[in-house]
Design a protein around this nucleic acid. Structure first.
Lengths: 259, 259
DNA sequence: TTAAATATGTACGTTAGCGCACATACTATA
DNA sequence: TATAGTATGTGCGCTAACGTACATATTTAA
């Protein structure tokens, strides 16, 4: 009873909060778990620079990281976001050890990291860890592809709704701590554009916000205003990482949670 | 002498024309080569539909295939192009066996295909074939990422130049057989826009074209007009698939050609 | 040789989003 | 509680790209 109270007051972090780690068969999880290192991931921290060598893979649990590319003129655009459903540093096992894109913490929080060497040892067993990582990478490819299409064809309003929804999917509450300036940077659009659209959404009763905080009031309403891209990506993550059939192929135990 | 003439008149197709196949160590190539099937890939052929199950991987040699997503309203946009430097059907080994995107032949030609089962047998040896495929996938991820960024920030003229250059990189001559309508479809823009820009490029002496054919006259000129994306992707392919260090890790013999 | 189909050219009004210049409001710290 | 720093609001002209509607070439098939 006492222990339970303590848990409630100070909920301890657990690797299981990351859906990929949670999906590993016990045997594998136990093998890597001594090497899992809980790390704080403060807002703005750069996990890896463009072209920089990666030393760890990161499994976010309460943080969200943005994969983006910074152009020569300083402008940038998000390629994909990664939260508790995923992992950062795929180029470690895919090969090359570095990418032209950058990874920056977009929502502060915690995550677990694993030394590149440890990940590679496990990956090279060519077992469940490898299959899980490749499946996640395939899902990430869908995410990136859809971002490309979305950037081409959809309005900033649709994209903002999509971004809000997918960020929400990775958070425990319905409040995001995020300035409009930061969101504009993610989407690669003007801050003023976000201000205007956020105002519209607020007037429509879908969100409410104050300086640096956005609360989603009507999720369904946002889903109505966003483009098909949100659902395409969500369904594909679900299919690849939770679907029973898919899961059977890498572990007989359980799938990867994805709300 | 006679044989040589015959060769010149009717140059036979060879799996080595695909840079990935050419990069495989002899032992592995010999093992899969009986299963490599030369196939014609006519313009417009759909290699796989959105959501359709893949039965083969395709290694283009003279053809170019466009990976694109078709939206609910029928509009579409290219995510990446794949020619003799690559392979189609990565979701076979990445997992999931299907993707929301579609693959359509954009430039008619030939390619070799391999049954999914054969590819998987080789991939599952977790040797050079696996590492080569993962490295290629990593390069493709960069390509897709850059497409997303490019769609967000760069002008249609820059994107057209980029598209012409990367298509040229996969062809033996400097002439593309391609209507403006098709190009517009690839880029996901209006046909009239392409007409106008192509006119500009022609007046500037960079290209010349007639109904369904475009000849690049001044490659350097196009490179000056395109955005950084072209070079980012090109360098990354080179680094991942030709760089000696990279190559050493999957074969002691040779790298993957990429002009 | 003609007709039909397809490809390219041109024009014109519309619009989403940009760049810039500020005004206003909130928040933290002195 | 003043002040500086940061976030948000608003307006305005500008431009790239869009949608639409045709005109004019060029190729293929009848």
């Amino acid at each position: 009873m006492v222990a339970e109270t303590v848990k409630l007051v100070k909920p301890s972090h657990s690797p299981q909060q990351n859906h990929l780690l949670a999906a590993l068969p016990a045997e594998i999880f136990d093998r890597i778990s001594p090497d899992l290192e809980l790390v704080a991931m403060p807002l703005g921290e750069v996990l890896y620079e463009s072209g920089g060598i990666l030393h760890h893979v990161y499994f976010p649990i309460t943080s969200i990281v943005s994969l983006h590319y910074v152009m020569e003129n300083g402008a940038s655009a998000e390629i994909a976001g990664v939260g508790n459903e995923g992992v950062l540093g795929i180029s470690i096992f895919m090969g090359g050890n570095t990418t032209p894109s950058q990874a920056t913490v977009q929502t502060a929080g915690y995550g677990y990291r694993l030394k590149a060497r440890v990940m590679m040892e496990e990956f090279n067993r060519a077992g469940p860890m490898m299959r899980l990582m490749l499946r996640y990478t395939q899902a990430l490819i869908t995410h990136m592809s859809q971002t490309a299409v979305c950037n081409r064809h959809h309005s900033v309003e649709q994209q903002l709704c999509r971004w809000l929804l997918s960020t929400l999917d990775r958070l425990p509450s319905n409040e995001l701590t995020m300035t409009q300036e930061l969101i504009a940077g993610m989407l690669g659009v003007r801050r003023e554009g976000i201000t205007e659209i956020a105002g519209n959404l607020q007037r429509a009763g879908l969100i409410s916000y104050r300086r640096g905080h956005i609360t989603v009031l009507d999720r369904t309403g946002l889903e109505k205003r966003t483009c098909e891209c949100y659902n395409v990506v969500k369904k594909e993550f679900h299919r690849l990482l939770r679907n029973p059939e898919a899961v059977k192929s890498f572990t007989a135990k359980q799938g990867v949670g994805f709300r």
